[in-house]
Design a binder for these strands. Structure first.
Lengths: 346, 346
DNA sequence: ACCTCGACGTTATACGTAAAACCTCGGGGT
DNA sequence: ACCCCGAGGTTTTACGTATAACGTCGAGGT
């Protein structure tokens, strides 16, 4: 093996395939593009395919994208992938995208990803459209008005400039929680709320308060916390240790906070659900990993991604996007029960 | 508003900028590319920048990629993003990539993402390199030998055709677990092992067995389980309910399995850690969400991604990749304690 | 004998960018 | 008076693909 200059390890192009098959580059493009019926004979087509395979030909996507003016790439803007909910949204979106020959590139919002401030550059390729969670709306910046179709996930129906919208029936979910706990007999509540300012959490809070207001004799106190177990535990501990009659139920904006609330209860010597009911939201894997398992609201995260991608594809295709919001369901598990008999009534 | 044909809402190109600034397209490219020193006067450069800004010019990345023959895009091949570990690996990789103007596109392995069998297409753009977890090695297929630089994460040092490798010192981690439990007095172990066939799990098993063999009077039984809480619980329940002397410690390949083992213990009326010690691996958020908090081995997941991306960048740059494996540390928490006093000795 | 037409290709072009190669002009050295 | 040179540009080309526009040729109709 004389190690002279490498024989240029450059990838084969459609022209190389053409040469090998004894046809023109155009014919290669036609055959491999699948639109050769009536333009190239079956025998020739087979020869081309064979040559392409033997050379290990892969079309240069940059060239194709340039030629076609589309990239078959969507950008998904989410707060952070370490949040299981968004990992699942991505999974759903990527699956539908793949079915249509699309790719999904992620733009986790800035605080999660360091100094990358340019969402366009993060793609490394031009984009055909954007799907964004309302929780990452702040990271949108110049994305809006960039002329790209924008699909918003779980966002305020009031805000504008959106090509399509995929929403969860969050309000209904929270109503189910309220009814569940009221039905068990609870009257004194704490709402352990996410400190994140976003449509979806605003709805949770508003709906809970509205639902509880309908029933006389109820009280609810709202406590905000950052979205992690530790913060949830601290916030819940403070609330539970506060003077005055103790709440019998803690309604959390998220399973993560609920896990924190459960730990707080245990530290204070309270049993869940006997002394205190706790409910979560999202039905993450966490919900069935903790003890007791969390009563929570199952959100079809993958479906959100799927519908979001489908909506974007529809918009790109000038079709109307399928409207309607996705239903959600309460999953009653071990963290909720009737309040203790000795609980002082309000 | 007469709704005639739209005035072609086409994105401005560098030629449009050139026209607006009264220069040639080449000058625009030079100025915006930052290599104009001594070729274009400062005044002209300023005019170009102004025009570009006013037109809202964004370079067409497909064209740039075609021209340069590089895409500044890396593919990250992982089993599934819903696994927090890999979400964190992605986060780290994306952060380093962003610092260097690179993008990271994901290829979650097939069972997670449906019918997309072509990793190349999933990118929607040609790739400069690939970073792959050994846990997703099965999905690699044609990626190998495609002539792309390949960086493997946590993989067998023996396998070949790899441009660089980033490994965790998994063996040391497992040794720490063994020493911790042996030091507490445990002698009868169960190894709740991941059923996934991959280098990293093989090392965990082998190291644990080796470490325990060093101490006379120890026994260890290996039980495989799929990587979810439910499967872990079932497997652990079977083992704990089996006849013969009960193990005093369950060493798990993963925090998820450990959470399952804890639930199994509780169902059987065993207290953790009083009656049974349980250890995890990875230190996921889950580890501090459950009660008691898990004794586990913290893996610097983000760093794995960072080093992986840095290694790929080095390879692309013909620099040597920084070698060495990342250290890991035992985090002793509430799920491990000395065995019960009445535990029958082997 | 001539025209038509379909089957089977080929040639030419454009996509938007980066950069190599090339111009032009005025000033300074000899 | 001549050459050279650098500053400040411009013209041109190539990247690899998809496709519109254009040939060619033999069979079949009249």
């Amino acid at each position: 093996m004389t190690s002279a200059a490498q024989p240029a390890p450059t990838r084969p192009t459609s022209r190389d395939v053409a040469r090998a098959a004894g046809v023109s580059q155009a014919s290669v493009s036609l055959v491999l593009g699948g639109k050769w019926r009536g333009r190239v004979s079956e025998a020739t087509a087979e020869r081309v395919r064979r040559a392409a395979h033997e050379l290990g030909y892969r079309p240069n996507l940059a060239a194709r994208n340039l030629r076609l003016g589309r990239t078959r790439t969507a950008l998904l803007v989410v707060p952070a992938l370490t949040n299981e909910f968004f990992a699942r949204v991505y999974t759903g979106a990527a699956a539908v995208a793949a079915e249509h020959g699309f790719g999904v590139v992620l733009y986790p919002s800035p605080d999660g990803i360091g100094p990358a401030r340019d969402p366009f550059a993060s793609a490394s390729a031009s984009l055909d459209g954007v799907i964004a969670s309302s929780m990452a709306a702040g990271a949108l910046g110049e994305l809006r008005g960039a002329g790209l179709p924008l699909v918003m996930l779980d966002s305020d129906p009031a805000d504008t400039g959106v090509a399509a919208r995929v929403n969860l029936d969050i309000a209904d979910g929270m109503r189910q929680v309220a009814e569940h706990l009221l039905g068990l007999g609870h009257r004194r509540f704490v709402h352990l709320a996410s400190a994140v300012d976003s449509w979806t959490f605003a709805v949770r809070g508003r709906t809970l308060h509205d639902a509880l207001r309908m029933v006389p004799g109820t009280s609810v106190r709202t406590v905000p916390a950052a979205l992690d177990v530790h913060a949830g535990r601290i916030a819940a501990e403070h609330t539970l240790a506060a003077p005055g009659p103790r709440p019998t139920a803690i309604v959390c904006d998220d399973d993560i906070l609920a896990a924190g609330a459960c730990k707080a209860a245990r530290r204070l010597g309270l049993r869940v659900p006997d002394d205190l009911s706790v409910t979560g939201f999202d039905d993450l894997a966490l919900a069935t990993a903790v003890e007791p398992e969390l009563t929570t609201v199952r959100l079809p995260a993958e479906q959100v991604g799927e519908r979001g991608m489908a909506a974007l594809l529809a918009v790109l295709d000038d079709r109307p996007a399928e409207p309607g919001s996705l239903p959600v369901h309460l999953v009653a598990r071990g963290s909720s029960a009737p309040p203790p008999a000795d609980a002082p009534h309000a």
